[in-house]
Write a protein that binds this DNA or RNA. Structure first.
Lengths: 146, 146
DNA sequence: CGTATTTCGGACTCTGTTGTCTTAAATTAA
DNA sequence: TTAATTTAAGACAACAGAGTCCGAAATACG
């Protein structure tokens, strides 16, 4: 349904990355800490953050004092980057009626209408930086967890 | 991911209803015909169309010469009506980060941005009538099946 | 070196959606 | 009435996403 635009893995990843961006210290943050703060299963979150590490968005460190940290400045990471890293590059190309090969040549009857909305969503996600969201959460005391 | 805004059940239902609206004859159309034309599993489509019958969007008739038909004029049925009937009334209210109780009082950092997009999608789906889409498919020879 | 800590990697279970199958009930027509 | 056709209803299987669990590898520290 509308609202399932992001997989759970993706929304978990987003919340974790925003959380990391809010962190003052420059040290690594253990995934266990993140998982308890955000109320997300530790092992599940571990896998998701591994994907972000593979994608070059995070860096990780094993052992004591280990954990994860942002690999680049939070102002240079967008919501879009996280979505692509976790849900894959096909996340913004699917037909709303699920017709295979629906495109501008042989479109479904909702193709143009949906393409417009999808482009707006894509633009919005490219616009929103992790840094900006982290500041919003700090200043307006918004929620990231339960 | 983006593109999974509608469940498969919902997109199947939409395609079937548009197909019904394109029909010239005023008789019932057997679900079996619809399922073969659209390339959808017969039994699965049967269940979905039952939901639309329960919702008062279709009428059904058992036995020979039976099948389903639109209960009201196609111009008075919108895409939104179908989505609500199949995916439920909560289809347009979920938080994009999956936070329970995310609302204007205690929002997630993407609440306002997503609310805007969601409202646009809702408006688009209310705007698009089954009748209009059916005519589009006829005149522009668009696809509803594989 | 040895131990504790932490990510990495794989295998596994659980759950909701999708899809299949079988039987019952209703309706038409001979 | 009987037979054929079609939806209704429910049980069941297959699949994917979500979540759990266990051991291996790396690292810091005594």
């Amino acid at each position: 349904m509308v609202g399932d635009v992001l997989s759970k893995a993706c929304s978990y990843g987003l919340r974790a990355v925003i959380s990391l961006a809010m962190r003052q210290e420059s040290s690594y943050q253990p995934i266990r800490e993140l998982s308890t703060t955000l109320g997300i299963s530790f092992h599940f979150l571990t896998k998701i953050l591994q994907q972000l590490t593979d994608a070059g968005i995070l860096v990780s460190q094993k052992g004591p004092k280990g954990g994860v940290a942002l690999a680049v400045d939070a102002s240079r990471v967008s919501v879009y980057d996280i979505v692509i890293a976790i849900d894959g590059s096909g996340a913004f190309t699917a037909c709303i009626l699920g017709l295979p090969g629906c495109g501008s040549r042989v479109p479904c009857p909702l193709h143009e209408q949906w393409a417009e909305e999808r482009l707006r969503i894509e633009a919005m996600m490219k616009e929103e930086s992790i840094d900006g969201l982290a500041h919003e959460v700090s200043s307006r005391r918004l929620r990231l967890g339960p």
